[in-house]
Design a protein around this nucleic acid. Sequence first.
DNA 1: GACAGATGAAGGA
DNA 2: TCCTTCATCTGTC
Length: 179
Amino acid sequence: MNAEFVELPVTTSDGVFLAHYSELGLARLNFPNADGLLSPEQKTRGRAVSAKQIPLQILRWHRDATEALKSVLAGRATKKLPPLDWTGTTKFQQAVWRAMLKLGPGKTKSYGEIAEAIGKPKAVRAVGGACGANPIPVLVPCHRVLAANKKIGGFSSGLDWKRRLLAKEGINFDPPSAG
DNA sequence: GACAGATGAAGGA
DNA sequence: TCCTTCATCTGTC
């Protein structure tokens, strides 16, 4: 397959994300590195992309994605999402991600509740696996999925990001100080 | 076919 | 209340 991917940076107050677009829509979103800057790999790819002609359609998707990303980072609901390219993923994963898209800001569900929502209440561990395979974090709010006892669970891009995103939506996981 | 995983629940100290 | 162990289901190699 000769899938062409266009990579564009998304500058936010939390750093520079990197969005990957295919001809079908947004295919991937990379977090900034710890410094909030583009990683060396991202910088390299960015230079390569800058010389390309970017289709107008992708520029529109990028505008939608940028607005949506900033909305999420501000703790607000996303007004409009670009089409998401989930080519190469399984139906199960897509069902999990669609269930997550229904979660509004400040709302959380457990892995078990997500499993129930897609009609497979016992597939809680598989839901965790699908979350980890999520190529478009933040916009597909896998950070809003918690363990059953409201523990933070895990996050493929680092628990620090998960805590930060949840904190923006009014959900804090800092342990209550002893004193 | 076997193994691994971002879970959940139950039992014991 | 915390830790350990077992059961369950799906994805990947």
